[in-house]
Nucleic acid binder design. Structure first.
Lengths: 306, 306
DNA sequence: TTTGCCAATACCTGAAAGGTATCGCATGAC
DNA sequence: GTCATGCGATACCTTTCAGGTATTGGCAAA
């Protein structure tokens, strides 16, 4: 049995005339007659009453007509839906990101993707770099937004943007009074860093700055992610070092301040498995690339102006 | 697109291995690979991730798999249902019969058909001979059970059984007292006959008997069908002449009695359009033929014994 | 580097679908 | 009754395409 035969059958069932049906199907009448005869033979059933000069559907023909309509409609739906998903116009995209990414351009990027592909369902979650790597490898997510970039040859990556590091300080008179803070002067402070595991991690980047500035922090508090670290800062446990984009979101008990000293900056990068060429992923990277370029351009313009 | 391709696709989607899928489909691997590739080309969509040595369904592949399952299930249902109806094992059969048929073997015949083909829906109705003929010609019914047989070369027919005529008399002392009733003695009675239109009809058969017995009824009351005629007899309007099978159903106010005199008998015959070779009709005729034979045999045996 | 597995490709063969011409049969006109 | 007409079925040819065998290519494990 083939779809073609069902289509032929439907045409004849609707026209009740082989010649007209053949015309409508853009073919000659003899092969159409033969296909219908073959269909009847295949089913072992009379589908048409050919008595006299007039053709009528038998009961069996009527039920087959009903089924054929539904089958072909369903086939058409399968066709359209599959093509749409295959083109990335629908489906599902699982994105995970580090906590500190939710303050930068990532929200805009996601908004842009949503408006470009409204039918793609986004599954968003937040995790630290190590979990991002594991989840990506195990195909639990499609896209990882990490800081700094994940070291894995099997990943496709696109740099979203670079930014300076700033200090996240508890809102105390001690810090508020200072016009300028030198990193080297922070040796006796408690540093709240993250993630605790696995090491080396972003925490070691900050410890690297300390070393470069000639000290080891007096006290070290390690948390699992950025959000927890900032919480500890807000209740006065100590200070932290964060990407400057997080300063856009003000939080009671926390003040953000630039510092004087070694500032390697930090970069936000999106990743996907190289072998995951799903159109949803490729489209996301496409939009991300445009966003990254525009953002870089804007920073450059702003820098030139200042 | 063809069903075969969907089946191939499903096999590969389930096995996730072209070689095993090909074995399961009882074919070689290369043509299977080609068919899948053709399907992907036709849809313009990647259905499988062939990265590394392992095969995975893409999102598009997953949705197609879902659709394909439903389409093939539906196709299978269409197949089975159409074949069943085509073989007469299901569907619908419209039977109409004259009122006087509901007392003879027709109920048994219908019961027999129902138990042989329980899935065939029976649409039963009652009408007089003239309407039976019209309804059959206009394809409003499939089978007509008529008395006497319908004169039309375009009908297939099968005689169900012949029977004697008897008198249907009002339950009065006058008739109850007589041991034997001679038809010729009924000249001064009111005859309740049917149908009124169109003529000639069964009413004229009875008038023919009267003529043969040498009289015309003193009074004539014409009704549209057998049921109405018997009702009139039951309230004492007059007498009627009926097939003896109706006597099996006793009715208050009516007594059935044989008579002495000319008795041409009457026959119940089933009809269908010659061009209606629907299996439901053919099956009904088949059962009817068996019933007719058995009934004739029983009567003969009973006759020989007496 | 080699071996093995597995899908893809090359090439051939055969079945089947489509086209043209024609037949057979019924219907309706004269 | 005969003839013309309409329409589906059949005969025969051509072309397309699905399937088979042999082989290649690429990746992964030994």
């Amino acid at each position: 049995m083939e779809f073609k035969r069902l289509r032929y059958f439907l045409a004849v069932a609707e026209e009740l005339h082989f010649g007209r049906a053949a015309t409508r199907l853009d073919m000659a009448q003899p092969p159409l007659s033969r296909q219908i005869a073959a269909l009847e033979a295949e089913l072992g059933v009379q589908l048409f009453d050919r008595s006299r000069s007039q053709i009528r559907l038998t009961q069996a023909g009527q039920t087959l007509q009903e089924h054929a309509r539904q089958i072909l409609a369903r086939l058409d739906a399968a066709y359209r839906e599959t093509k749409l998903i295959g083109a990335g116009g629908a489906g599902r995209l699982r994105i995970a990101f580090v906590g500190s990414a939710s303050h930068g351009i990532l929200p805009n990027l996601i908004k842009a993707f949503r408006s470009a592909y409204p039918e793609v369902e986004l599954a968003l979650s937040s995790m630290n770099n190590a979990d991002l790597q594991r989840a990506l490898v195990q195909r639990e997510i499609d896209v990882a937004v990490a800081r700094p970039e994940l070291k894995d040859e099997e990943f496709r990556r696109e740099l979203l943007y670079r930014e300076k590091l700033i200090l996240a300080l508890p809102d105390t008179p001690h810090f508020a009074a200072q016009a300028e803070i030198r990193f080297a002067d922070l040796a006796d402070q408690t540093f709240v860093l993250y993630p605790r595991r696995p090491r080396p991690s972003y925490a070691d980047v900050v410890l690297g700055i300390c070393a470069r500035e000639g000290f080891q922090p007096a006290r070290l508090e390690l948390t699992q992610d950025f959000q927890s670290a900032i919480s500890l800062v807000s209740v006065g446990v100590g200070l932290s070092v964060a990407p400057e984009s997080v300063a856009r979101t003000q939080r009671p008990g926390v003040i953000y301040r630039p510092y004087v000293g070694f500032n390697p900056g930090t970069a936000l990068t999106i990743h996907a498995r190289l072998d995951n060429r799903a159109p949803q992923v490729m489209n996301f990277f496409g939009i991300a690339r445009k966003h990254a370029r525009r953002h870089a351009q804007e920073r450059k313009t702003a820098q030139d102006a200042s």
